[in-house]
Design a binder for these strands. Structure first.
Length: 425
DNA sequence: TCTGGGGTCCTAGGACCC
DNA sequence: TCTGGGGTCCTAGGACCC
C-alpha cells in the first residue's frame, strides 16, 4: 500500500486579508473583522494580532485598544469572503488532483504520488505563489501523511516565518520534533475540555499524546481521540472527502440588533429565518420533515430574567415549501411566546431530510400531493431574489425589520454586485 | 448598554421488546 | 433478603470544528 500525503492550505487572516485586498491604503494598517451584530472580533490582520487584540473578544472590551492604535474595524461581509474563497478554491483545484474544501478558508489537497516527481516543499511554495498571484490572498501550506499532522504542519508554517510559509512533515524525526514543541490543545480535535482531562493524566504536549497507547485512550476517552493519537503517529484514519456530504440539518438563527419585546417583531424575525432556511433547503434539493423553533434572552445579562424555549413539530410529509413551514413556525411561536422578556436571539432548524419523491408515506396517510404550481412558485421566488436582490418576500417577514442585526462598518460587495465594483480613478 | 453563526459526530441512558 | 438479560432504537447532551 502506498502511503498517502496530505497538504493543508489555509488562508492567512482570511477575512482581514479580504478587506485589505480592496483597500490598498490599509496595507500596513491593523485591521479587525467583527462577528454579526458587530459583537466580537472574529479575524485580525497580523498588525492587529501584534497589538494584542485577542480572537473572539467582545468589541466593547477592546474599544479603547482599537481607538488608541487606530485599528480599523469592519463588519462581516460574507458576500465578499464567500466569493474570494471560491477564487482561492478553484485555483487550488487547478493545482492538485483532489481537493477537499474544508471551510471557507481551508482546503486539504491529496498529494499522494506528487513526492515521486518533485520536492514536496517546492510544490507547496508553488501553490503559495500561484494563489497569491491569482487571488491576492496569502496562504500557508502544511504537508504530512495524515490530516491531523498536516494541520500541525500548517500551524508551524504560520508560526515560524523562517519556514517561508511551507512545512513538510514527511519525516518522522521532524514530526516528533514539532510535536514536542506544541501543547496538546493545538492538536486538531483536542478542545478545552479534553485538554483539561489530558493534563490531569500528565499529558501536556502533542508528543506525549502521540506516545500514549491508543487502547488506553480508547478506554478513557473515545474512538475520536483514539483516532487522533493514531493520526499523530502518521497513520491516516481520516480520509480526504472531495464531495460535500449532503447536509443533515439547516439552521438559521441570529442575535437581534436590539432586544425584542414585541410579539409581532418576533413573528417577523422567525418568518425571515424560515424563509432563509427553506431557500437553503431548496438549494440542497432536499425536503425536510422536522421543524424546530427556538428563542431566548441573553445568557450574559444578569439583570434580565432568563428564558429559553424550543419546540419542534413533524410534518406529515416532507416539504420545502416556505409557506408550509411559515404556518407551522407561527404555531410553535404561539406555544412558546411569553410576554415581558427581552429576547436576544431566535432561530429555526430544519432536519430529517429526504430526496424529493423518495419519502414513503404510511399505509393510512393521506397520499402526497406535490402541486407543480407550488414548486414553480418557490423556484420563481428564488430566481428573482438571487438575480435582482431581495424583491419578493412574505408579508410576515415585515418590511422594516427593526430587529435585524447591526452591521455599521460594512465594506462594499466589491466582487459580487455591479453597483459596488471598486472604481479606478 | 454592548458577548456570532452554522455545523458534525459520539455516547450514555431510557424506552421498549422478547 | 434475594426479582433476568440482551438487543435495538431514539434522544439529549456533550464535545469538537471553523
Amino acid at each position: 500500500m502506498t502511503s498517502v500525503v496530505f497538504a493543508l492550505v489555509d488562508c492567512n487572516n482570511f477575512y482581514a486579508s479580504c478587506e485589505k485586498l480592496f483597500r490598498p491604503d490599509l496595507t500596513h494598517t491593523p485591521v479587525v473583522v467583527l462577528s454579526n451584530n458587530d459583537g466580537c472580533v472574529v479575524a485580525r490582520s497580523k498588525e492587529a494580532k501584534k497589538l494584542g487584540v485577542k480572537m473572539g473578544v467582545p468589541v466593547f472590551q477592546v474599544r479603547e485598544l482599537l481607538q488608541k492604535h487606530g485599528i480599523v474595524a469592519f463588519s462581516s461581509n460574507y458576500a465578499l469572503y464567500a466569493d474570494m474563497s471560491q477564487r482561492v478554491m478553484s485555483t487550488l483545484e487547478a493545482l492538485a488532483p483532489r481537493v477537499e474544501v474544508y471551510s471557507i478558508d481551508e482546503a486539504f489537497l491529496d498529494l499522494t504520488g506528487v513526492g515521486y516527481s518533485q520536492n514536496l516543499t517546492e510544490f507547496g511554495l508553488m501553490v503559495r505563489r500561484t494563489v497569491q498571484q491569482y487571488t491576492g490572498i496569502s496562504v500557508c501550506v502544511g504537508i504530512a501523511p495524515s490530516k491531523t499532522l498536516a494541520k500541525l504542519a500548517n500551524h508551524a508554517a504560520k508560526t515560524w516565518h523562517r519556514t517561508g510559509g511551507v512545512v513538510d512533515l514527511s519525516s518522522t524525526v521532524r514530526q516528533r520534533k514539532l510535536l514536542a514543541l506544541l501543547p496538546v490543545n493545538e492538536v486538531w480535535g483536542i478542545g478545552a475540555k479534553l485538554t483539561k482531562r489530558l493534563q490531569q493524566l500528565g499529558i501536556d504536549t502533542a508528543l506525549q499524546l502521540a506516545d500514549t497507547a491508543p487502547e488506553f485512550i480508547r478506554q478513557h476517552f473515545s474512538v475520536v481521540v483514539e483516532r487522533t493519537v493514531r493520526e499523530l503517529n502518521g497513520e491516516s484514519c481520516i480520509a480526504l472527502e472531495e464531495m460535500a456530504a449532503t447536509k443533515k440539518q439547516i439552521v438559521s438563527s441570529r442575535a437581534f440588533g436590539e432586544r425584542i419585546t414585541d410579539k409581532q417583531q418576533m413573528r417577523e424575525a422567525i418568518s425571515e429565518y424560515i424563509s432563509r432556511a427553506c431557500k437553503k433547503l431548496r438549494q440542497e434539493q432536499q425536503q425536510a420533515k422536522l421543524l424546530s423553533v427556538f428563542l431566548r434572552t441573553s445568557p450574559f445579562s444578569d439583570k434580565d430574567a432568563p428564558y429559553s424555549a424550543s419546540k419542534s413539530i413533524e410534518l406529515d410529509t416532507p416539504s420545502n415549501d416556505t409557506r408550509v413551514f411559515l404556518a407551522k413556525a407561527m404555531q410553535l411561536l404561539d406555544a412558546m411566546w411569553v410576554n415581558g422578556y427581552r429576547y436576544a436571539k431566535a432561530g429555526v432548524m430544519l432536519a430529517d431530510f429526504y430526496d424529493p419523491g423518495v419519502y414513503q408515506p404510511g399505509l393510512f396517510d393521506e397520499p402526497i400531493v406535490q402541486r407543480e404550481t407550488d414548486q414553480k412558485l418557490m423556484q420563481l421566488m428564488d430566481t428573482l431574489n438571487s438575480k435582482q436582490g431581495k424583491t419578493l418576500w412574505f408579508a410576515s417577514q415585515g418590511t422594516k425589520q427593526e430587529w435585524s442585526m447591526k452591521r455599521e462598518l460594512l465594506s462594499p460587495a466589491y466582487t459580487t454586485d455591479w453597483q459596488q465594483l471598486p472604481l479606478v480613478k
